[in-house]
Amino acid sequence: MAVRLGRGETPYMATLRLDGVVHDYVRGRQPVRALNGVSLTLGGGQCVSVLGPSGSGKSTMLHVMGALDIPSEGRVLLDGTDLATLDDDALSDLRRRRFGFVFQFFNLLPALTAWENVAVPRLLDGEKLGSVRAEALALLDRVNLADRADHRPGELSGGQMQRVAIARSLIMDPGVLLADEPTGNLDSRTGDELLDLLASLAHDGSERSVVMVTHSVDAALRSDRAVLLTDGDIVADGTPEDVVAKFVGEGRRP
């Protein structure tokens, strides 16, 4: 069965804009500034990598981009809608329908089979599980895991689990796909395969944006655009080669 290519009202093309975003949090009793007035605009059909050393604020930026967290100051605008104006339910709906998430630790539900994990967002959207099964299986086929559909996460390798997570992130046909260190927990060969897969998702004709937080230079070089964060500030934004050169030149290694 072919993968369903649209969710009706869900626009593939999405413009995500960060406008002077500041994010503070408290560690212990000490206030810490994770983002220091970040501004950034993402269009459709792009694979963007976010580079930076540990503690530079790149994960926090991904969190505020994906409506997982609300910035202390500044605005996050998705197609012109300020996310700060939405209540918790609306933000939940937004995450479900407009974003796809790929986590470093896969975050699959251990009691569910691979296809059930893929179908979860649709279940959360009020659809019957049985009616989604065919699409979930097709997505698993797309990530070369059709033969593991009825396996539980405990029976899969790290790479296979991340493929299931990618299939899950696609089940709602989101306009933006956010990946946090997607290869951080995988060996390099498996990581390479997954990076190719992720990068291809921005170029499959869907006009989808893929934003990938990574320490990996190899990962950044596969993207269309790279952003370098240091101490909560964007210090470089451009072609992957330039940004990687700056990153390496500064001696910042993960």
Binding site: D88, S92, R95, R96, F103, N107, L109, P121, R168
Partner: peptide
């Protein structure tokens, strides 16, 4: 952890 994942994937609180 599982609940946080569900919330991240778009589950409402209720």
């Amino acid at each position: 952890g599982e609940i946080a994942s569900l919330r991240a994937l778009g589950s409402r609180r209720r």
